[in-house]
Simulated scan of single mutants.
Amino acid sequence: MSFNKAHEHEQAAQQHRENGDFVEAGECYTAAAYIYLADWPPTHRGKNVSHGEYYLLNAATCYRLGGCTDRARNRCQQGVLIAEELLDRTKNIGGTTAYDRARYAAWYEFIGDFRVVGILTEKVSAYERAEQIYFEEGDPPLAHREQEHIWLVEFFEQILHESDGDVENWRKIMQEMTFSEWVKYKQEHLPDAFDKLISQSE
């Protein structure tokens, strides 16, 4: 399956975002997300689905910035439902390393992020479940991240950057973080950074 069209939508979304055309950016991110989510049923751990979830987070963010709260909540509710299905589909996939087994918790992180962006309930419980799984699987270092976690970290960095957070310091301390420390750090900082970003656009 080719994702060239999704890349075109992403480039258009970034341009709209830079120009302050947030609703248009949200539309383009949504289009990119649906292309990745169309690779269904998800293969193995859902690598392409996680990329689609990342675009849905960006779409919802842009809709919030553009004042389309209902549309943002819609994308977040979709994202939560998809992540919940991936939790069911991948629950019996093991792995030879602690990181392989810990990857399952990424879907709980997506749920938490969508609940932050979409002003949905129970975001804390999703993050706490992710943290619990990381502990159970040996709490590998965040530096070993790939696939699903790459998109989770990328989204956090975007929000931190756009809300004038200290991205440079974050990139230094993240090198020493374990996965449980990462999700705790995100739980403490993402909601405030996101609220600050939204308030800057009002």
Rank of each mutant, 00 (worst) to 15 (best):
F135D: 04
E148S: 11
I173H: 01
E176I: 03
G118F: 09
K172A: 01
K186L: 08
S125Q: 14
R171A: 10
E136G: 08
R129G: 00
V167A: 10
E137C: 12
E162D: 11
F114R: 08
I150L: 08
S180R: 04
F135W: 09
E146H: 13
F155Y: 10
A126D: 03
T178K: 07
P141M: 12
K123V: 03
V117N: 10
V167K: 09
E136A: 07
W170A: 00
Q147Y: 10
V183D: 01
E131K: 11
I119Q: 06
E128H: 08
V124S: 13
D139V: 02
F155C: 03
F135T: 00
K186W: 07
H149M: 10
R115I: 00
M177E: 05
E137A: 08
Q147R: 12
W182L: 04
A130C: 01
L160I: 02
L120A: 01
I119Y: 13
Y134T: 01
M177A: 01
Q132T: 11
V153G: 02
T178M: 03
Q187E: 11
D166Q: 11
A130E: 05
R145W: 12
K123P: 12
N169S: 08
I133D: 00
I159C: 02
A143P: 05
L120Y: 05
E162L: 14
H144E: 13
Y134E: 00
L152D: 01
K186A: 06
H144P: 12
V183N: 02
A126K: 06
E122G: 09
S163T: 03
E181I: 00
Q175P: 03
Q187A: 12
L152K: 09
P141R: 13
P141N: 07
H161C: 14
L160D: 00
